[in-house]
Design a binder for these strands. Structure first.
Lengths: 132, 132, 132, 132
DNA sequence: GTGGTCTAGACCACA
DNA sequence: GTGGTCTAGACCACC
């Protein structure tokens, strides 16, 4: 299934990260599977009305953590999902997001229980079919 | 009660935001009350070994949402007004962090249970004494 | 110890990779240690007579695998060396270099013994003081 | 003896080079001898499921260093000349791959013994019967 | 057609 | 001052 890419130019997140995160979301949710093709750099740039370099940067970001694989002259494809990091590294990579959610959540007045419930709810929403 | 400010220069969050959020959290947790004085810009800058401009920016950020009030020549004090967000607004502000944590966590191979446990553990660190 | 950066514009390897690999070589050999500062993007670009974006790309490449850590507004520093990849992933990352060396080596007429000897010799040269 | 060509589209090496190197290795290993015929461009392209232009480029690459000779209208044959490099030249060409493997290997945490063992194992795969 | 590299130059956030 | 982002446009290798 193809992604319906959208960007919000006024957002705090940079455009290339918005694009990359939409791909990560789709892969994480199982909407895109291994080997599936992504739109070409130029095609996506044209659709989103951004510079091709910006899309290329998003794809480079995704290739850096093996979410996708680029084959020069052929295109861009979803990579194989694999456990590539050690346990310590996985926690280290999760921590910034954990910190951001907890500090923002507490500042907004959410309780710990509300936050954990929100996590569980969002995860259920993303993984209704429990992909392996 | 004064805040025991700490910053981590290697963190993803900019230093001025780390400072500002510690004040916001202390105020919303009741550790600091209306009218209480905060350290002066240069005193805090000296303690944290950061540029005074950075502390000034943190205070400006806090003054912008009325968490503190700067009284020229007298100092900086905790303000009266507490911003209240609607339920929808609170969730809208939380969502990007929620999505980032869940998608990144699932891609890293964490289970939903591990994520919720991590949230609870991190929140305990920030709110050790379960304030009301 | 600072690196004496040099680039060869006519080389097959792209400029940003030449820069990044010199840093990797220096870190791998223990010539640069954790926390040590690298030249600023602009300074290095001026020295090498290349576009600052090219140096920035080299630094982004190094930051992607945690060889360095960039702190916006402060500079670029050598990161902590750590075992971040699983055993399978480490082999997967080594394989392209392994394949390139073996195929090129055999095509050039080297024997397997000569290749292994060359590896051992080069490693000795890089690690005379056996850093931990 | 004909070559059993295989390509891996996901590899770092471009496809045309994978094809050319298999021919070079077969010739230098004595599996193919002077005057022996190679498959036609379109036959090989069909077998490997690649674009005929890609095979043509591989053959052009091989013809450029006289590994093969294309006789218009008759076909493609293993050439007479063998390029000989001086000792210095052979080492000069090997060095970049040697450096890449050693620095990357050491950064990934491999020992020198592991690297030499990996070299030997990989070479065995490419040269199973230890040709003279 | 595809992606990859590089330059030039602008603007922004952070310290 | 620092690094980060984005645009515009060029050139190249590969398929």
């Amino acid at each position: 299934m193809a992604i319906d890419f959208t960007i919000s130019p006024g957002s705090a997140a940079p455009i290339f990260k918005q694009i990359a995160d939409q791909v990560r979301l789709a892969v994480s949710a199982g909407k895109m599977v291994e080997g599936e093709a992504l739109p070409s750099v130029r095609a996506l740039a044209e659709k989103l009305l951004v510079n091709p370099n910006t899309v290329a940067k998003a794809y480079a970001d995704l290739a850096a953590d093996s979410t996708i694989e680029t084959q020069a002259g052929r295109g861009v494809f979803v990579g194989r999902r694999r456990q590539m990091y050690t346990k310590a590294e996985r926690h280290r990579r999760l921590k910034p997001h954990l910190d951001a959610l907890v500090t923002e959540g507490l500042l907004l007045g959410f309780t710990v229980e509300e936050l954990t419930a929100a996590i569980a709810a969002r995860a259920e929403q993303l993984l209704p079919q429990e992909p392996k």
